[in-house]
Amino acid sequence: MWVTQTVLKNQNKGTLMSVDQDTVRRIARLARIAVRDDELPALAGELNSILHFVEQLNEVDTKGVEPMTSAVDVTMKMRDDVVTSGNLQKEVTANAPKSEDGFYVVPRVVE
């Protein structure tokens, strides 16, 4: 079917933007996901095949087309300036892996 064919076509073609292992490392760092060096080649391959797939969009002429900003065509409602929530210290810290005296606790963050 057309989808499959396009995928195959793109996979064989090689496109402008190709993700190398350094890029995968940088992206993983940005996303705060630890990646071992031995995982990099496979990840780069997967990301490339997905990126090549989505790069089909390059053939669409979108000149002058507004990007969609929301799936519903309504005006955003606003709330009144009223305090409706408070004293949930216990609730918001109950699930915390580490908390103390109402604080969340993390390894020291140096500035």
């Binding site: 305090v83 929530s85 210290q89 609730e91 810290t93 005296d101 109402g102």
Partner: peptide, 18 residues
């Protein structure tokens, strides 16, 4: 969110689920 903005409260007492 509907949490208060008052200054100087006990930690995480002016924190909503949001």
């Amino acid at each position: 969110s509907g949490s208060s903005t008052a200054f100087g409260a006990e930690p995480n007492t002016q924190v909503s689920l949001v």
